Computed example of a mutant assay.
Amino acid sequence: MGKKAKSSRKGKKAWRANISTEEIEDFFEKSTKDALSGGPLSSAPADSLFVVDKSRDVSMKRKIEKNREKDDSATVSGMADMWDEKGKDNSNTRKKWKPSVIAAVEVEPPGCSFNPVPESHQDVLAHAVAEEMQKVYQNELGPQPVPLTVPGEVVDEEEMYFIEADNGSDDDGENLGENEDAALDERSCKTKRVTRVVLNKRARHKERLRKESEARKVEELSKEIDSLPDIIQEIAKDDEEKQKRHLRRVVAKQERLKSCPPRLGRHKFEPAPVQVLLSEEISGSLRKLKGCCTLAKDRYKSLEKRGLIVPTAKNRR
């Protein structure tokens, strides 16, 4: 078969034959697809393009209605009569304040009276003196602060030079001694040839040590099995000691709470001094008694001791 003859491009027929029709075919395909799918998307309204899913709104509405019913019931129960039994059941329970172990009004010892018995007065006076002496001893025997300056003499430049020279000579002597020791070690440490007999001897020694350790372990295990009753008794004793220790700790905590409140702030609680009269101040009459303590200060210290307010720093005037 021969080659197809080329057509001439000079006439109008040749122009029409060589024109491409791909764009027209694409347009027709697109239009047919749009017609089959319901029309072009560019001309479609927004309501048909976007759809809101409302299938879960029913469950959400139910939840909202349940919450509203609960709120309504709570408000009704809150507005119920406080003397009604039903109202008591529906009322909200509040956290109760834990009462303090320390009494609101503490009674002073008998020795603090304006006309005390001599024996009780001496006991309270001795207790007050012991507290004051404890404070004095604590201040005297307590840890001293670090001094800012260290006492000593100033060293001159010449003395510093001699000190540095002495240190350098000592270092040189130490270095020489270390070098000599290293040389001796190198001479003494020479490689020795290990024979087969020595290797066998070492292996037998290692095997013997292993067997002895295994036998020792078996013996210890048998002893532990035989001493099981003693071990059980020791465990019971330990549990009893732990329980006693726990009880002692609880009792000590209660006693500590009776004497001082829990730590609430930065400052610790400082109890007020014992209001006891000296032997010269005892007159036996209320008219001659001097005023020593105000009621407001006493109540303030009581509130601090019971842990109702935070203790403040002591004002020293």
Rank of each mutant, 00 (worst) to 15 (best):
A296Y: 04
H127T: 04
P45Q: 01
R187W: 07
A44I: 09
H246V: 09
E224D: 09
P109C: 00
V274A: 12
M160K: 11
T195V: 00
L36P: 12
A296W: 01
M1G: 14
L295H: 10
A128E: 09
L199T: 08
E270W: 09
D181W: 07
D181E: 11
H267C: 03
N18S: 12
E220R: 12
E140F: 04
V155I: 14
D89T: 06
D71N: 09
T21Y: 07
E174G: 10
R306D: 03
L228M: 13
R94M: 13
A35G: 07
V117T: 11
I24C: 03
Q144I: 06
T149L: 13
A183P: 00
L141P: 10
S283F: 07
E23A: 09
E207H: 06
D185I: 00
E29H: 03
E157A: 14
I102H: 09
D156N: 15
R208L: 12
S285M: 04
K13E: 11
L148S: 04
P311T: 03
E212N: 06
L209R: 06
K258A: 11
A313H: 10
P40L: 03
R16K: 13
D185R: 01
K297H: 13
G152F: 01
D171I: 15
E29D: 08
D47P: 03
E178Y: 05
S55E: 10
P271L: 10
T312G: 15
K96F: 12
T75E: 14
L41N: 02
E159Y: 06
S37P: 08
E157F: 04
T93C: 04
E119N: 01
Q134P: 01
R94L: 14
F28M: 08
M82R: 15
K88I: 05
Q243C: 07
R94F: 14
S227E: 15
E131G: 02
S73Y: 07
A74Y: 08
Q233S: 12
Q243G: 05
E212Q: 10
A74R: 12
K12P: 11
F114Y: 11
E270A: 07
Q233P: 04
V154P: 01
I24L: 07
A46Y: 02
P311I: 01
Q233L: 13
S302N: 11
E132F: 04
T191N: 12
L41A: 00
R202H: 08
N179L: 05
L141W: 11
V276L: 01
N67F: 05
A313S: 11
G284H: 05
K6V: 01
V197K: 13
L303W: 01
R56T: 09
S42L: 15
D230K: 08
L49W: 07
Q134K: 06
L303E: 13
D34R: 02
S213N: 10
K223L: 06
C260F: 15
E132Q: 06
P147W: 06
E85V: 04
K13Y: 13
R187C: 05
N90P: 03
K70G: 05
S77A: 15
E157D: 15
D171E: 08
R193K: 14
V150T: 09
R306A: 00
R9H: 09
M82P: 15
S222D: 13
V251P: 05
V105M: 06
K223Y: 01
L148R: 02
I225K: 14
A272Q: 10
S43A: 14
G168E: 10
Y161H: 03
